[in-house]
Design a protein around this nucleic acid. Sequence first.
DNA 1: CATGAATGAGCTTTCATTCAT
DNA 2: AATGAATGAAAGCTCATTCAT
Lengths: 220, 220, 220, 220
Amino acid sequence: MSAGRGGGVRGTRLPRAVRERQMMDAAVHTFGRRGYRVASMEEIAGLAGVSKPLVYLYLNSKEELFTACVRREARALRASVRDSVDPRLPADRQLWAGLTAFFTHTAENPDGWAVLHRQARTHGEPFALEVAAMRDEMVARVASLIGAAAREAGTAGRTPELAARDMTGLAQALVGAAESLAGWRHEDGTVSARDAAATLMNFAWVGLGELLRGERWTAR
Amino acid sequence: MSAGRGGGVRGTRLPRAVRERQMMDAAVHTFGRRGYRVASMEEIAGLAGVSKPLVYLYLNSKEELFTACVRREARALRASVRDSVDPRLPADRQLWAGLTAFFTHTAENPDGWAVLHRQARTHGEPFALEVAAMRDEMVARVASLIGAAAREAGTAGRTPELAARDMTGLAQALVGAAESLAGWRHEDGTVSARDAAATLMNFAWVGLGELLRGERWTAR
Amino acid sequence: MSAGRGGGVRGTRLPRAVRERQMMDAAVHTFGRRGYRVASMEEIAGLAGVSKPLVYLYLNSKEELFTACVRREARALRASVRDSVDPRLPADRQLWAGLTAFFTHTAENPDGWAVLHRQARTHGEPFALEVAAMRDEMVARVASLIGAAAREAGTAGRTPELAARDMTGLAQALVGAAESLAGWRHEDGTVSARDAAATLMNFAWVGLGELLRGERWTAR
Amino acid sequence: MSAGRGGGVRGTRLPRAVRERQMMDAAVHTFGRRGYRVASMEEIAGLAGVSKPLVYLYLNSKEELFTACVRREARALRASVRDSVDPRLPADRQLWAGLTAFFTHTAENPDGWAVLHRQARTHGEPFALEVAAMRDEMVARVASLIGAAAREAGTAGRTPELAARDMTGLAQALVGAAESLAGWRHEDGTVSARDAAATLMNFAWVGLGELLRGERWTAR
DNA sequence: CATGAATGAGCTTTCATTCAT
DNA sequence: AATGAATGAAAGCTCATTCAT
């Protein structure tokens, strides 16, 4: 009943790590498109090319499987962004690099992004907390970039201070704007990651008021 | 060969319009907190103080009930924002008014906002389209405010023009930022609607760069 | 809220007998086409132009309503057949007249015939018995016609006797043949009541005639 | 957040083919006695000694289960009749054999016969068509036997011809008579299959014989 | 390593029936 | 004479989960 050729055929014996990856891929795909509740273990197992009990053997339960998906995708997104940012650059350059990486990664992993941004946040505490932590970390990172920019500008003493809370608010706004643009890109399809990042840098860094006066943010 | 017994005691025999409102309120509450799939009709009926069949009699099906919730909440949010904006004011003042109304309304109707922002967008085409239409309308409105601001600034000839697509991108960013701040307010609890609107006006209108130089957006 | 013109308008007050007739008509129509279980009281009440409670007030329950339908239609069919038969005629002429009336009546009252022949017999004892009684009566009537024919033929002594059971069997066959032809007519649509009756008389009576003369079919 | 517990005790872990048969048997029994709408999947599952979900796993839905029953019973009845008939025999002997087989089979499979004759025809298009096809086939077969008998009798030229429609009408009558006698046997209980077949052959064939010789019944 | 067989629990939906007016 | 308001009960179907092999 088993096939002699190996490779994707149902019943073929594969090392656990490989199987687990197949399952997670299938799960991210299915959860991302259908949603946590609508996706069934049957569907996921089928897409992974294994039987349901094997999924349970390796991943224990639907809840744990989904958690594993969320963690994996969160880790991957964080890594993409972190690896793209050189902390020795000025703050605005760091932000530019991070945003570009964010838009690139979400476009290349739409299902993973859907799991994080849409599904995990919608389906109750256990998952929402996981993803909230990641988002808070990003917000904090952006807030600290804003703080760094303030120091770079050397305006600390002369200008009304930006309280920590203000910076968090600004960072929240910036992250939300990025999420929104990621969705827009997804629908539109013709906007490159750099376009999106540029739009956001102009918006955030220069401000609409300046923009209208002809001011532009540039990478140099 | 006989069937249902019928005719219990629970109901206080109210006119249909009243009952329907109670049901919709219960549904928005439940859908907003538990999610479309997890919420059960039984739960909703119980919260509304009626039996399940009455919910079906008046609202037909879970899907229709949810659609009705989405429509009602979308209409309410739109009305709040629209009514707060005086179209004779300058663009930035209009935006300020709209944002304040948005933050106020979402804070006062957290369940309705959850239905629109989280649940409806997550649970498939029929609902997502409904809410996407409302959001697109808001984005278009913001984009046209940006266009109006450009004309007000009288910079049309001298400065690089903002293409329609650019304006849409900026508007998408601004709307996403607002959504994000609404969520932040919700968690934080100590940020007033005016604080949030001010943060966003500064962020968007003045730009981080200017902000750091001490520039501020003010209502005058 | 009530209309001033009377006649079919919901809410109009009509004498009980009239209302009851409307309800029965609607019920026969609905039961005949949709079946006892599928037909809902709501549907019947709607078709009759009244509210559900009124149906209950007059006819008590679905079961009683259906029983009333069965009785009414059985009575009508019996009456049609009985009234067409002149007991002073010879047996074959009586049968001919009865069959013609049967085919005419069932074609003119397809819903009633469906209630009797299809629905009542299919949906459990209480109704099936009712209709079985009517059918048995018809079978008995046909059997007695066969007996009469035997006496008319004056063959009682000379030929192998037709036992009562044989006559019942023959009558059962004849009645079944008539039911089958009624259905065939209904589908075909181009066969007149007289055609059907003639087909059956040829089939049955020519055969019976020989039978009565002592003819028998044998396996050799 | 966890759901079903699963994995009970009832099942004796049988191969699918066996279980499927048990379910079909239970379904035919239940549908035949209680009717399509009244029979519940729970009842059928219980009678088959399994849980409801297993019935759905194997047979998909109530409708498909019923269709499968109708098909199986139709196939079985057709096979019984077909296998009993030797096409090299004269027409009357073929009819005799077929009728005997029909009466035997329906008596041995009363539930299957009820499903075909009573339930399937009563419960809407999808099923009625299935069974109508089988019945039409039987009618056509009988009609062609009548045609063969006419040729055997060599009366083609001398006597008024029997048009195709006439033969269909006669076949309809004969099949209806057989159905009726099958029901009669079922109630009476003391009539053997051969008795019933003999009654019908006498009734039909002696009549047909005369018919083929040019005899006709007339209203005068 | 991997699967076929099996089920408890729960959900949406429908319907006959009744009460208060 | 007639109806709007309301519900208990049950049915079809799905799903996460487990046991035996």
